[in-house]
Amino acid sequence: MKRTDKNQSFVWVMLVVLGCFLSPASQAAETLVFTAIPDQDESRLRARFSIIASYLQEQLGVDVRYLPVKSYGAAVTAFKNDQVQLAWFGGLSGVRARSRVPGSSAIAQGYEDQFFTSYFIANRQQVSFTASPDIIPTSISSLDVLKGVTFSFGSKGSTSGRLMPEFYVRKHFSSAPNDVFRRVGFSGDHSRTIALVESGAFQAGAVNYKVWEKAVAQGSVDTEKVAVVWKTPTYPDYQWTIRGDVDQRFGKGFTEKVTDALLEMSEPALLKAFPRKSFVPAHNDDYVPIVNVAKSVGLID
């Protein structure tokens, strides 16, 4: 009995503390809410992006709050429903979000996002091909060795792990991935794709080039076992997208103000959250290639 009392009081203390955490934060009438969902590193999003929120708050002079949403679908829905007005989307999710919110526009992209690329990687013991660590093949015929292997994409909604690789597979083989490969999986994450290909569970896969290069630099992948088969041509990826009605709500010229604040972001601590070198201007037209590719693959109507 004694023991239960003790536990009981512990629970009470815990719950009181909880109350402090959850007491609704005082929200001013006009709060800019943003969300950000990088598909390279999903850990501790809140810790990483709360500093971005305070930076933007300082620059814009309005309350800024970060809404930590992890799934692409949830983020697009939140943007559509006006629960977030600004979002850091991937290429495909950005296109999906803008098609649902008329008037919204891409305002800035990462420096690297102007020429993003995906790598096709393969297990060297199971797929025979010549690979050298210095020169990454750029001729699409390099993909020929992958016919009939088991293949893993990344997450289903990822631009670099799914959309662009699938597009080039379809283009080169003129048939769907399910017919080209013996088995098609969706690992859900780039790092996991690398791990699966390294172990030989899947013979080949497609990954975001940044994740691959980071893994190689950190030595977390054995390049004796896995190597790059082909590098896709470049395409535009991540971007900041803002709703069209923010000028009405936050005052004239607000979109430009946000754009400037993003482009001027130069502190390494802030940029590390994304992680990008800097931000450059972007426009909806920059993403027309993504729209066309997504339509041809059948991921959007």
Partner: peptide, 21 residues
């Protein structure tokens, strides 16, 4: 609950497992 912006144990676990941490 990670979907609605509430970081619970399951949410952190899911990211950590997914990314190999």
């Amino acid at each position: 609950l990670g979907f609605v912006g509430l970081p619970t144990l399951g949410y952190h676990l899911e990211s950590a497992v997914k990314e190999g941490h």
